[in-house]
Amino acid sequence: MRYVQIFFLYFQEAFAERGRSFVWFLITLLNPLLYFTFWYAATGGGEQTIFGSSMQSISSYYFLLIVAGSMLQSHAEENIGYWHIYHGRLTNYLLRPISYYGINFLSEIPWRIIQGFFGIVVFFLMNFFFPHFIVLTSDIWTMILAFCIFFLAYTLSYAVKVVIGVSAFWLTDYHGLVEIVDMFRLIAGGFVVPLYLFPDWIFKIVSFTPFPYSMYFPILAWQGKLSYGELFQCIGIQLLWIVGFFAIFKILWKKGSREYTGVSQ
């Protein structure tokens, strides 16, 4: 109950800054639209297939990417690294009797919901005006599992970003690390191109990273492209990555919080 109340209080903060949410959403909106336009032109206005994929399949992917990109991608590293550690706001969290990992996790969900809501509105508008461009699963069990995968995808994204954020305890500018990870994330997460368009060997390599499980597979789950077995496998791998990154966080946090000086670093 305590965490539910805290969650709703953070919701108020996110509502108060809804304008900021909308601007961030526009960034998430424009990228997939750009890629969609590119593929639309490349397939001769959607007439041809690309590596066996129809325009309908690709467009569904990118429209779902708008929702997933705004809803599932945590930006915790910015709060943790920049505001909390560099600017000393961590002081407020360290001296309160609540889990730092937990409260940051909770406090970001309202932002993801609000930005995701903008994405869902765009998705439904697209579906209304261009119904032949979008395909979603109609199987209820797939939907339920896809919903679980969506939630775990956010949790995984958060787990990765928290680890990047706490690197600010040691790095005088952790933004370089953010950029490097982002490059991998964009490619391996399927932000630029759906991973099924990659050669098999590249696909196998990126499958060993956490990134496809925080974006690519959740989208495929909603498209109905994964069997039940693959859906459960995805959930299992997501859980493993989450536990792994949480363990890394615990180690870094234990060492890093001893480095913290409580002033701008």
Binding site: R2, I6, L9, E13, A16, G88, N92, R96, P97, I98
Partner: peptide, 21 residues
Amino acid sequence: KNQLWWDLPAEETFLLNKEIY
């Protein structure tokens, strides 16, 4: 240093602390 939410009335931060504590 401050712990108050900038865009909300201070009362909301009090409520947050009520739950935390």
